[in-house]
Computed example of a mutant assay.
Amino acid sequence: MGTYRWEWKIAEIISKTSLSDNVVDLVANKIQKLPLRSQYILKMAGLGTKFDLKTLAWVCQMENRDNEAELEQILHQAVDSMLLEKCRLEYNTEGYRFGHERIQQVAYNLIQDDIERNHIHLAIGRHLRYLAKSGAYSELRNADPTNSCSLSSSTTPVPPPPPWLIIAAADQLNAVNPSLFQDRREVIDLVTLNLVAADRVMQRSAFFPARNYLLKGLSLLPPSPHMRWKQHYSLALSLSVKLAGIECSLGRFVDCERLVQEIKLHALKPQDKLAALFAQIEAYGSQGRIDDAIEVCRGILHQWGEPLFQAKKFTKTHVTTELGKTKWLLKGKDDAYLLHLPRMTNPSVNVIHKVYCKLSHLAHWAHHY
């Protein structure tokens, strides 16, 4: 008759329970019973959510072939113990991740010294940022691993870095106490990195992570709005405009309005205000403030030279008249003719067209249409 024994599937226990403290203790004890070498590797791995073999080898200073083989063996043992699991990173790269975020937290907490933790985050972040410099994002190219990412004027096409690399670099550097950065330029580089990371996660409609990256970027700029916009106009504009759009999408209309007003106050050119104004239109529409949304549209059209909305009171007669003009212009023209018309390149016309698209939606809800 065979021998039976209990087998604890840690990752499965954690994923199917609320993770009480005793389960966390169980995981911690399991890790602490591993050989010191394995503990060290899991401790370093705990600094990130996902990782590949090459990056972890660099972090653990195990970059030669023999050490990498040892590292891979330890990782396989961690997979067998349900502490780690294999995963596919972007661009089909093989990587690893912890079986549960609380397992990662236990491994992370093995680094008990905050100063040591900050310096490790800083080293990893700089290394990942350096690896990402070859990406298509010009603001991340020509970066030195210990210094700032300078703008590149190179026109040589290069493949973009995997999205996880940008995000991982931002996560690592965001965990660092800003006082550890070498100079102000490196802090501003991190602002740019957060902006790019926000764009990356927004490609997957991850609004909350994108919001966090943008807020982190703004927090690294001067706290005074006046100084922020004066010293770092382009970054302040990009961060604020993107954040206003996200706040609107998340239903945080008060925060959206605050950002829109700040942008309207500090933006130097009408085109710099457009994205914020469109976010304001969406926010007003979502709140049922149709008249306010239409007023914003009127203001844009007036500023961009569209005469239609010059009348103080816009009525159904105006709409009927303009529809008649449109029908007359389209008379005798079939779909094939319209499809072969040249693309609109006049910026003013494009803006006006976009506003009318917004108005066509608002018109269904406005009582005076």
Score class of each variant (00 low, 15 high):
Ile352Met: 13
Met62Gln: 13
Ala236Thr: 10
Gly285Met: 08
Gln303Glu: 13
Ala279Glu: 02
Gly135His: 05
His367Tyr: 12
Leu19His: 03
Asn64Phe: 13
Trp8Pro: 00
Phe98Met: 01
Gly288Glu: 03
Val260Ile: 09
Pro307Ile: 04
Trp164Glu: 14
Thr345Met: 14
Asn147Arg: 12
Ser81Gly: 01
Tyr91Gly: 00
Thr156Glu: 15
Ser20Thr: 10
Glu247Leu: 09
Ala197Met: 07
Ala136Ile: 08
Asn29Ile: 11
Gly324Lys: 08
Asn350Gln: 14
Ser15Trp: 05
Pro209Gln: 02
Ile290Glu: 00
Leu53Met: 05
Val196Lys: 09
Asn92Ile: 03
Asp80Tyr: 10
Leu19Gly: 10
Asp25Asn: 10
Leu193Val: 05
Leu268His: 04
Arg258Lys: 05
His340Gly: 01
Ala28Trp: 13
Ser20Arg: 11
Thr192Asp: 14
Trp164His: 13
His121Gln: 06
Tyr213Glu: 03
His121Thr: 02
His76Asn: 05
Asp52Ser: 00
Pro145Trp: 13
Cys357Ile: 15
Pro222His: 11
Phe309Gly: 00
Met82Phe: 14
Ala279Asn: 03
Arg298Gln: 12
Ala57Arg: 13
Asn109Lys: 14
Glu322Gln: 10
Val176Tyr: 15
Gly299Gln: 15
Pro270Trp: 03
Val191Cys: 07
Ile263Val: 10
Pro159Lys: 06
Val187Ser: 06
Arg5Ile: 15
Leu221Pro: 14
Asp171Phe: 12
Lys16Phe: 04
Ser138Val: 14
